[in-house]
C-alpha cells in the first residue's frame, strides 16, 4: 500500500521504512507509533526513503517531531531520498539536523 510504513527497533536503532507518500493521511499514524520511543534509549533514527515519492508539510513535520521528541541525543538519518524530496528538505532547512545518505 502506498501509505503503509514499517518501524523496527533493534540495537537502539529505530528504522522507519517510509511509504511512497507521506502526507496528512498517514502521518498521524506514524507520529503515534513514533511516540512509543519517547524516553527510550535511541541511538539512531533512520528514515528509509527509497520508496518515497511525495512528502507534504505534514510529512516533514513528522521528521521534525521525531528529532525534537525522540532524537535530541540521537542521530537522524535519511536514506535513499530522491532529489525532489531532498530539495524540499534542504529548502525548508531540515537537512541541518540529519545525515543524508544514498544507502544504508
Amino acid at each position: 500500500m502506498a501509505s503503509e510504513f514499517t518501524i523496527t527497533f533493534e540495537n537502539d536503532i529505530v528504522t522507519i521504512d517510509l511509504p511512497s507518500r507521506l502526507d496528512a493521511t498517514n502521518t498521524e499514524g506514524l507520529q503515534n507509533d513514533l511516540k512509543e520511543f519517547i524516553g527510550k534509549k535511541v541511538e539512531k533514527l533512520v528514515f528509509v526513503a527509497t520508496n518515497l515519492e511525495y512528502i507534504s508539510s505534514a510529512g516533514l513535520r513528522v521528521i521534525i517531531f521525531a528529532k525534537q521528541k525522540i532524537g535530541v541525543d540521537a542521530h537522524i538519518f535519511l536514506i535513499g531520498a530522491a532529489d525532489s524530496i531532498l530539495n524540499v528538505i534542504k529548502m525548508s532547512g531540515l537537512d541541518n539536523f540529519m545525515t543524508i545518505q544514498d544507502s544504508l
Binding site: 512528502i55 507534504s56 508539510s57 516533514l60 530539495n87 524540499v88 529548502m91 525548508s92 532547512g93 531540515l94
Partner: peptide, 20 residues
C-alpha cells in the same frame, strides 16, 4: 516567493534563509 510554497513550507523556507 518560496520554492516550497506548493508544500505549504514557506514559513520554514523563509526562516531558513534568515538563519543562514
Amino acid at each position: 516567493l518560496a520554492a516550497t510554497g506548493k508544500f505549504g513550507m514557506q514559513v520554514d523556507e523563509c526562516k531558513t534563509l534568515i538563519r543562514e
